[in-house]
Amino acid sequence: MTAHLKGLVLDFGGVLTTPLLPAALAFEQREGLAEGTLLTGLYLNEEGIRLTERLERGTLTQIEWNEAAGRLLGIAPDNLMGRVFADLRPEPAVIAAAAEARRAGVKVAVLSNSVGLAPWNLYDGYELEDLYDAVVLSEEHGMRKPEPEIYELVLEQLGLRGEECVYVDDTAAYLPAAAELGFATLHAVDPPRTVATLSGLLGLARPGEDPERVTV
């Protein structure tokens, strides 16, 4: 283990789960939408961005988001969030690496921009409260990544400084704010390489070849 590293903070969707993009593409196919409709309609659209940010802060319910996003996309709103991410599955290699880190004495946290907990709960079945030392879901605290305060909150819950932690996220835009607080940052784009890089940093196993770029 790199001597000063005592904590590991993991994003949830796309890190502890399978990647988000294939799930979104599968949703579009099921709904008969043109490829890219979800991204364009919700995440490159000013109103869609506003809705999602409100959802992540907990000022909009998932049901309200479903209704508004359904209108933007021109599709039925019923359990829309659950339909969008129906194909997401646990990412066993990263989950196993997190468990191994804890066994090695590393504190492990989950930091997630949440998508509402009802009627569909993205986190069901992952045993977050039992398997991790801290869990910070944005909607429960009225803040979201990349606001510095939410990274500071997870550090407070772990009882560690940024310089003692690694932060892993599949969204590159959420890494600089963590780096400003001293975190080593890892952009997760491929689970085997994510695990290989973490293994090298935390001394969990022999590092794999072609590790992902990491800044310490």
Rank of each mutant, 00 (worst) to 15 (best):
G74H: 06
T197W: 08
L202K: 04
P191R: 01
E129T: 08
R161W: 07
L16E: 05
F183A: 08
A68P: 07
Q62H: 05
A69R: 06
Q157T: 03
G14T: 03
L80H: 05
G41A: 01
L128P: 12
L72F: 01
A179M: 08
R193L: 13
P207D: 02
G74R: 02
L160F: 09
G116F: 11
A99F: 08
N113D: 14
Y126P: 02
A104S: 15
N79H: 12
T185E: 10
P191V: 00
L38Q: 00
G14F: 11
A188T: 06
E35A: 14
E67L: 14
E35C: 03
A76E: 15
T171F: 13
T40V: 13
E28P: 05
L51K: 01
L38E: 00
M81S: 10
Y43E: 11
Y123E: 06
P22F: 12
L160C: 10
P90C: 03
A205T: 00
T40Y: 01
L55F: 11
L111P: 03
T171Y: 13
A86D: 13
Y123W: 14
V216Q: 12
R57Y: 10
A134Y: 01
F12V: 09
R102E: 07
A86M: 06
F183W: 12
G159R: 03
A69W: 00
R30T: 03
L20E: 14
E100T: 13
T18N: 08
L39M: 11
S138D: 09
F12H: 10
Q157W: 12
C165F: 09
A178G: 09
G14D: 08
G74T: 04
L42E: 09
E67R: 15
L60D: 03
E180F: 02
E149Y: 04
W120A: 07
A177F: 06
L181H: 13
H4I: 05
V15G: 02
A173C: 03
G208M: 05
G70Q: 03
R54P: 00
L80S: 00
F85Q: 01
P192S: 07
L198R: 05
N79E: 09
R193P: 14
R206G: 04
V94S: 08
D210E: 14
I150M: 11
L131D: 14
G41W: 03
